[in-house]
């Protein structure tokens, strides 16, 4: 219903069952499960960026700010030694992140293109240095989350955040929900106008739409989900660190999104998995893995103009 394109359908039917089964073979090895979990979480973050960049035409290098804020917000608002409700705090964090995005967006969205990249970068760096220099938030070392939230819903507890397997499956479900959410958004009336805004803002204004408002809403939604991903990341390892907010995080996410095929949404998952896969492989091969990684990415971007999603699209098209 949500995955109308053939290639997308294929991907969803192959990736998610595979991801569901994979941990069963890795059960003895917690390291791999954790690794997979962080890939899945990061894919959520990349997907929100992919929506912004690919579907709204807003290129930002400051998206990691919201990723980091997701973790820091939890530390700020949750009591230190008391288990809070996971769902309630998820809601809080998404709403607060969206409100912050509202304020930031009003400033940032007055610009576009290269200027927007610069101003988002500047704001994110300000935020990064604020947290890395602050004593209360642990400075460069970050902070530990001593008590993980309790996941009971109406008195029923479905899973335990401390169990890596449970957490992995929960993150996978979240990723699937994110994909469905973005598909619904892009397929909605809002999505139609957002697409129009991306293609031709002047024309869309002349047709009577408030372009700024559409951009702002998209920015808030993407930021809220980026914060959600950051929140899950913080819960996984039980600590937050300013490096989550560094521009390298944004840059990596942008590379993953481009690698996967900008704007394809499912490409974000593809890009993250492939990037992390390459990262892991090269890291074990050689100390100079960045060199290999860089040339690999240059090659892929040059070969596949519309990313890995574009390659899959072509394959599926040709099969028909």
């Amino acid at each position: 219903m949500f995955f109308l394109k053939k290639a997308e359908n294929w991907f969803v039917w192959i990736f998610f069952p595979l991801a569901l089964l994979l941990p069963l073979f890795l059960e003895q090895n917690e390291f791999y499960v954790n690794k997979l979990t962080s890939v899945v979480i990061f894919a959520m973050f990349v997907m929100s960026l992919d929506y912004l960049v690919g579907r709204c035409g807003m290129i930002t290098l400051g998206h990691s700010m919201f990723y980091g804020l997701g973790g820091y917000l939890f530390i700020m608002i949750a009591p230190e030694y008391e288990a809070v409700n996971f769902w309630v705090y998820t809601f809080y964090i998404c709403v607060i992140a969206a409100l912050i995005a509202l304020v930031v967006g009003v400033i940032v969205l007055r610009t576009s293109g290269i200027y927007m990249i610069m101003i988002t970068l500047a704001i994110a760096q300000m935020c990064f240095y604020f947290f890395s220099d602050s004593v209360e938030f642990g400075g460069n070392d970050g902070l530990f989350i001593f008590t993980k939230p309790d996941t009971s819903l109406f008195g029923l507890s479905f899973f335990n955040l401390d169990d890596p397997m449970h957490f992995y499956y929960f993150c996978l479900l979240s990723l699937f929900n994110c994909l469905v959410f973005w598909k619904v958004v892009t397929g909605s009336r809002f999505g139609r106008i957002m697409e129009a805004v991306k293609d031709n803002p002047a024309r869309t204004t002349a047709l009577g739409y408030n372009v700024f408002l559409f951009r702002l809403i998209s920015y808030c939604m993407a930021s809220a989900l980026a914060a959600y991903a950051g929140y899950l990341f913080a819960l996984q390892y039980g600590y937050v660190n300013p490096s989550m907010m560094s521009w390298q995080t944004s840059g990596t996410a942008l590379v993953m999104s481009i690698l996967g095929g900008m704007g394809s949404l499912y490409g974000a998952i593809l890009g993250t998995v492939v990037y992390e896969g390459l990262h892991y492989t090269f890291e074990h091969l050689t100390q100079h893995w960045l060199l290999l990684m860089g040339s690999m990415i240059i090659a892929m971007v040059m070969l596949f103009k519309s990313g890995l999603a574009g390659v899959i699209d072509n394959l599926v098209e040709r099969r028909k």
């Binding site: 619904v184 397929g187 909605s188 009336r189 809002f190 106008i193």
Partner: peptide, 10 residues
């Protein structure tokens, strides 16, 4: 109308 509705299929 409904241009701000993110759940209404287009």
């Amino acid at each position: 109308g409904g241009s701000f509705n993110i759940f209404l299929p287009k």
